[in-house]
């Protein structure tokens, strides 16, 4: 099945600009007429992911494929990798520094919330190489 594809480059230098890719995707999903709940779940998932890429990995690439029945978001970074995914998936566990906390993030809710918001989530990570998070949100019939 053909999809509509979007690619976003996430700038890791500027925290203030983090979220621009998520904002753009949200507008597109609205224009395409997806149900509000699907848009909301995609928005949470991609925004948390985008923030993570800026905080932990100096940015990266986001690729989104929009199908009539699902939205697939792939977030790829060349950051430090996640040493223990099970630990990172626990709500409240965080490696974020004080500066990030003062910006309103780094509470250790990102990955658990991304999982909760998507129907499928897969994390591939290698220390010193990077992390790829693939999230799928299904569109109900």
């Amino acid at each position: 099945m053909d999809s509509i594809h979007y690619h976003y480059l996430v700038d890791g230098e500027d925290f203030a600009r983090a979220g621009e890719a998520s904002s753009s995707l949200k507008s597109k999903l609205k224009q395409l007429g997806f149900p509000p709940d699907v848009i909301r779940r995609c928005s949470i998932a991609i925004y948390e992911g985008e923030i993570n890429m800026v905080i932990h990995a100096d940015g990266g690439d986001i690729d989104v494929d929009i199908y009539p029945d699902k939205i697939v978001m792939v977030l790829k970074d060349k950051g430090p990798g996640i040493p223990d995914i099970d630990l990172a998936m626990q709500a409240g566990w965080s490696t974020a520094k004080e500066q990030i906390l003062s910006l309103g993030f780094g509470a250790g809710m990102g990955l658990p919330n991304m999982k909760k918001s998507s129907d499928e989530m897969n994390v591939e990570t290698e220390i010193g190489v990077g992390t790829t998070v693939t999230m799928t949100v299904n569109v109900p019939n």
Binding site: A16, R17, I44, Y47, E48, F105
Partner: peptide
């Protein structure tokens, strides 16, 4: 992060945080 995890629909957000991410979060939710 907590707002993104817990807020409901048609909500008012009370915050002492003052940066662009407050607005991005509000937009997403």
């Amino acid at each position: 992060s907590d707002v993104l995890a817990f807020i409901k629909k048609d909500a008012v957000l009370l915050t002492g945080l003052n940066n662009l991410q407050v607005l991005r979060t509000a937009e997403m939710m």
